[in-house]
Measured scan of single mutants.
Amino acid sequence: MTFKLIINGKTLKGETTTEAVDAATAEKVFKQYANDNGLDGEWTYDDATKTFTITE
């Protein structure tokens, strides 16, 4: 399955995708991506669209 991450950061904005077997796996990938890029914010997830959002 394809999951999307929408980034609404103070300095970084955009989106990225990952292929994962489930939402929990995708969340780990996206949280590592956010950590690697210095993002810290509030996370939301929409199961209907398989989309995570981080807002700083």
Rank of each mutant, 00 (worst) to 15 (best):
N37M: 15
E19A: 08
T55I: 07
E15P: 04
T11R: 09
T25P: 02
E27F: 15
D36N: 09
T55N: 11
L12R: 07
T2N: 09
K50E: 03
T16M: 15
K31T: 05
W43F: 05
A26K: 00
T18R: 05
T25W: 09
N35W: 13
E27R: 08
V21W: 13
F30Q: 00
G41Y: 04
A24V: 11
A26D: 00
D46H: 06
K50M: 11
G38T: 05
Q32L: 09
A26P: 00
G41E: 01
K50W: 06
T16I: 15
K50F: 11
T25A: 14
G41Q: 02
N35I: 15
D36S: 09
L5Y: 01
A48Q: 11
T11M: 13
T53C: 06
K4D: 02
Q32F: 05
G14A: 11
E56L: 12
M1K: 13
F52R: 00
A26Y: 00
Q32G: 06
V21P: 14
T55L: 05
F3L: 01
D36H: 07
E56D: 08
F52D: 00
F3E: 00
K50T: 04
V21S: 12
K50Y: 11
K28N: 09
I7D: 01
L12H: 13
T51G: 02
E56V: 14
T2P: 05
F30V: 01
V29Q: 09
A20R: 03
D47V: 10
K10T: 13
A20D: 02
I7Y: 14
N37W: 15
A23R: 14
V29T: 13
K4A: 05
Y33G: 01
T17P: 02
F3T: 00
T25F: 08
T17V: 10
I6K: 07
K10S: 07
N8D: 09
Y45H: 02
Y33V: 04
F3V: 01
G38D: 09
T17S: 11
T18E: 04
K13A: 07
A34M: 06
A23S: 13
T55Q: 06
A26F: 01
T11G: 10
T25E: 13
K4T: 14
E15C: 10
E15D: 07
Q32I: 11
Y45L: 02
L39V: 11
L39C: 04
K13L: 08
N35S: 13
F30W: 02
N35V: 15
T2C: 07
T44I: 08
G9H: 11
K4H: 13
I54N: 01
T17M: 12
T51A: 05
D40I: 15
E19I: 15
W43K: 00
V29L: 14
T44F: 11
D46V: 06
T55E: 07
D22N: 09
E27A: 13
N37E: 07
K13W: 10
F30T: 00
F30H: 01
I6E: 04
M1T: 15
G38A: 09
I6Y: 06
Q32K: 15
V29F: 15
E56Q: 09
T49D: 06
L5C: 05
M1P: 14
A23E: 08
T53F: 11
I54P: 01
Y45G: 00
K4N: 05
A48S: 11
Q32C: 05
K28Q: 12
G38F: 11
D40L: 15
T18G: 03
T49Q: 08
M1Y: 15
A20L: 03
Y45E: 01
T55R: 06
F3Q: 00
N35G: 06
G14M: 15
W43E: 00
N35A: 14
I7R: 02
E56M: 14
V29E: 06
T18N: 03
V21D: 10
L12T: 12
V21R: 07
I54D: 00
F52K: 00
T25N: 08
E56N: 06
E42R: 11
G9F: 15
A20K: 03
Y33L: 06
E42T: 10
K13F: 10
V29H: 14
E42D: 13
T18P: 01
T18S: 04
N8V: 08
N37P: 01
T16G: 04
N35R: 15
L39F: 11
T2H: 10
T17A: 08
D22Y: 03
A24I: 10
T16D: 03
L5A: 02
G14R: 07
T2E: 08
I7L: 08
E42Y: 12
A20W: 02
A48F: 12
N8G: 04
I6S: 04
T11F: 14
F52G: 00
A23T: 07
Q32P: 01
W43V: 03
T49A: 07
E19C: 11
T18L: 08
F3C: 01
G38C: 09
Q32H: 08
T49W: 04
D36E: 13
L5H: 00
T25K: 06
F52L: 01
G41A: 03
K13G: 07
I6R: 06
K10V: 13
T55P: 01
K28A: 13
E42L: 13
L12E: 09
F52E: 00
L39D: 02
G38S: 09
F52M: 02
E27V: 06
Y33N: 02
K4I: 13
N8S: 12
D47C: 06
L39N: 03
E27I: 12
I7C: 05
D22I: 03
W43S: 01
I7M: 08
T49Y: 05
E27T: 04
G41M: 03
Y45V: 02
T44M: 07
G9Y: 12
Y33Q: 03
T55C: 05
T25Q: 11
Y45P: 00
T53H: 05
K4Q: 05
E42I: 14
M1Q: 14
D47R: 07
T16H: 14
A26G: 02
F30A: 01
T44Y: 11
G41F: 04
Q32V: 07
L5R: 00
K13M: 10
T49S: 13
D47S: 14
E15V: 10
Y33H: 04
Q32D: 07
N37A: 15
W43H: 01
D36G: 05
T53S: 06
T17I: 10
T44P: 00
N8Y: 14
V29P: 01
K50L: 10
I54T: 02
T44R: 12
V21Y: 15
K10I: 13
L12S: 10
T55F: 08
L12G: 10
D40Q: 15
I54K: 01
T53D: 02
V21A: 12
E19M: 14
T17H: 08
T53L: 05
Y45A: 01
T51P: 00
G14D: 08
A26E: 00
K13Y: 13
T51L: 03
K28I: 10
A34V: 12
D22A: 03
A48N: 13
T2L: 13
A34L: 05
A23G: 05
T25R: 07
T17C: 07
E27P: 00
I7W: 15
K28P: 03
G41S: 02
Y45Q: 01
A34F: 03
K10R: 14
G9E: 03
L12N: 09
E19F: 13
K13C: 09
F3M: 02
T53A: 05
V21H: 15
T25C: 06
N37T: 06
K13V: 12
G38N: 12
N35P: 01
A34G: 03
L12I: 14
T53P: 00
K13I: 11
A26T: 00
E19N: 10
M1V: 14
A24K: 11
T17W: 14
I54L: 14
T16S: 07
K13D: 06
F30Y: 02
T18Q: 05
D22E: 04
E42K: 13
D40H: 14
I54C: 05
T49R: 07
T11W: 13
A34E: 02
M1I: 14
A26L: 01
A23C: 07
V21G: 11
T16E: 08
K31A: 06
K10F: 13
